[in-house]
Design a protein around this nucleic acid. Structure first.
Length: 349
DNA sequence: AAGTCGGGGAG
DNA sequence: CTCCCAGACTT
């Protein structure tokens, strides 16, 4: 028996029931693929349900505002996916009459759709024989064949794609693709693969040599850069000041409190001077909130001040004013801020 | 080719 | 803590 048939057999018995596998609707498949980029199925699934319920088709999504989409996307991260989601929905609705293009090359032109997602849609929705190597597949293949090249190098990616394409013919590509992804997610996991449950055990070179931990090979270590955020929760008239983040930076287009970002950690005294310039004298200084990401560590403090009067006109115009409840309910904001607000409300109830 | 974009879960 | 996930875009 070939490893392909062993794999397919395993898949049919062990696959998870996932809603986006039960449909051929290109819209829903596209939506699921965008949500699942760099995101575990368990984490993305609630968002898939929310989005398909609120926006059952591409036209309803195309009618939404970006604020609305980002609010629904809140908590999932990589918010450019949410922005591109809307942009592409509008383009498909207007330029393509609401029908997703079937060709890989056409799909690739749409915002937020790269090589993986274009192939996934072409394969899953339109049964095209295209194979793509995602994180799961690269791990399975790297172990199966003890691939020495780094999976995140140009050379390694090329090689893996060749290997992958040799794994199936035109008829079996789609199913083999799904099988390998599922195997990577359920059995051939990064840290401690369940080789005893693996249908490919007898075909696996890494298993034969007990070198599972050495594969896949990766290059480059992560350098974690630090940032320091001082958020001002300024309360006036029972409302707080907020602004929308602009520029190509983390949390683009999400909402936040007025922010003082510094290149180094600064003392409370240094901050005091800055605040005094803004006319803020009476305030409390929160504990540090450490927001740890893969390549960023953000240390945030929250300065809470109840203002006796408005900010200066020039400052006042920079911000929106809303109640805390409105902010939480209607304005997409980072997890970090939501965490602070939860603590804040617990203390003040 | 390298840097950047989030958040959560596993180990 | 560190690493990784149904990757894509910018520089």
């Amino acid at each position: 028996m070939s490893f392909q048939s062993a794999l397919i057999k395993w898949y049919q018995k062990n696959k998870r029931d996932l809603p986006f596998r039960e449909t051929k609707d290109a819209y829903k498949i596209w939506l699921s693929e965008i949500i699942l980029q760099q995101t575990r199925v368990e984490q993305g699934l609630p968002y898939y349900y929310k989005f398909t319920e609120r926006y059952p088709d591409v036209f309803s999504l195309a009618r939404a505002s970006e604020d609305e989409v980002l609010k629904l996307w809140q908590g999932l991260g990589y918010y450019s996916r949410g922005r591109n989601l809307l942009a592409t929905a509008i383009e498909v609705a207007e330029k393509y009459n609401g029908v997703f293009p079937k060709q890989y090359s056409e799909l690739l032109k749409l915002k937020g759709i790269g090589p993986y997602t274009a192939a996934a849609i072409a394969s899953f929705a339109f049964d095209k024989p295209v194979f793509v190597v995602d994180g799961n597949v690269s791990r399975v293949l790297a172990r199966l064949f003890e691939v020495q090249q780094a999976v995140n190098s140009t050379e390694g990616k090329k090689l893996l794609e060749q290997i992958a394409n040799d794994c199936g013919d035109k008829k079996t590509t789609g199913i083999i693709q799904l099988c390998m992804m599922e195997l990577g997610a359920l059995v051939c996991t990064p840290a401690s693969p369940a080789c005893n449950l693996c249908p490919l055990q007898q075909y696996c070179q890494a298993y034969a040599h007990q070198t599972q931990k050495l594969f896949p090979v990766k290059e480059q270590k992560n350098i974690i850069k630090q940032r320091w955020f001082y958020y001002l929760m300024l309360i006036h008239d029972n409302k707080i000041y907020i602004q929308q983040r602009r520029g190509n930076d983390i949390w683009k287009n999400l909402y936040e409190f007025p922010l003082i970002e510094t290149k180094e950690k600064i003392s409370e005294k240094m901050l005091q001077a800055k605040l005094k310039d803004m006319g803020i004298s009476d305030y409390t200084f929160s504990k540090p909130y450490i927001h740890q990401l893969t390549h960023r560590k953000i240390e945030a403090h929250f300065i809470v001040s109840v203002l006796k009067r408005k900010l200066k006109k020039t400052e006042e115009e920079k911000f929106y004013k809303v109640t805390i409840k409105e902010f939480q309910k209607k304005y997409a904001h980072p997890r970090l801020i939501e965490k602070f607000l939860t603590d804040y409300q617990k203390r003040n109830q």
